[in-house]
């Protein structure tokens, strides 16, 4: 999908034109301090059609989807949904912010995991994510991060080593295929 304010409105089920830039979203954002572009600025960029900057920023990938911005917005703009939409548009248009690569890879690995198993296989998720992230940004610390926790998790019975799979995995595959093939459209 080509980025446009209409596309964002449709994906996020909102009206970005309603935003009057009060900044309450940015004021309450738990990760606002780390963001290179604040949520209200992202909405402004969408309003003014500057999608290059809106998609190519780390901020959209720092968002923790806590919905605080949307819940407190005086104009009922679904700001969290706008960030979701920007993430989707960024990946579809191959705009990958360098600093956010790891998060993007994580989300993709997560979805592939679901596509294959129907349910999350955590061990596989960790393994695939770490090797992919390592290949992408060669972060040795990341490769071993949490490895200290792993034995503990196993002794605490917190890991299913095999992971679960749904019975009708073929259907899950078809659901994915349909959602990605028909051109993703917003529903929520």
């Amino acid at each position: 999908m080509r980025p446009s304010s209409e596309a964002v409105d449709m994906l996020a089920h909102t009206h970005v034109t309603d935003c009057y830039q009060c900044g309450k979203c940015s004021a309450g954002c738990p990760v606002g301090e780390r963001m290179d572009v604040l949520p209200n600025q992202l909405v402004r960029l969408v309003q003014s059609g500057n999608f290059r900057r809106a998609m190519d920023c780390e901020a959209i990938w720092l968002c923790v989807s806590c919905q605080t911005c949307s819940a407190r917005c005086p104009k009922s703009v679904n700001c969290a949904g706008v960030l979701d939409a920007l993430r989707q548009l960024a990946v579809e248009n191959n705009v990958i912010n360098a600093a956010a690569r790891r998060t993007i890879v994580f989300q993709q690995v997560f979805l592939n995991n679901i596509r294959r198993n129907g349910r999350l296989n955590e061990l596989e998720l960790v393994g695939v994510f770490k090797s992919k992230a390592f290949l992408k940004d060669a972060s040795v610390p990341l490769l071993f991060k949490d490895s200290l926790l792993a034995p503990k998790m196993i002794t605490r019975g917190k890991f299913h080593l095999m992971g679960e799979k749904v019975k009708d995995r073929a259907l899950v595959g078809r659901i994915f295929e349909r959602c990605f093939a028909e051109g993703p459209r917003g529903h929520k």
Binding site: Q21, C22, G23, K24, A27, L38, P74
Partner: peptide
């Protein structure tokens, strides 16, 4: 220039979380 998102209290002080949209900082 900006709205306040939340007020909390800590040791008798009110902690006001706002934003200055002109600076672009919470």
């Amino acid at each position: 220039r900006g709205r306040v998102s939340r007020i909390t209290e800590h040791n008798g002080q009110l902690i006001v979380r706002g934003v200055d949209t002109l600076v672009g900082e919470a």
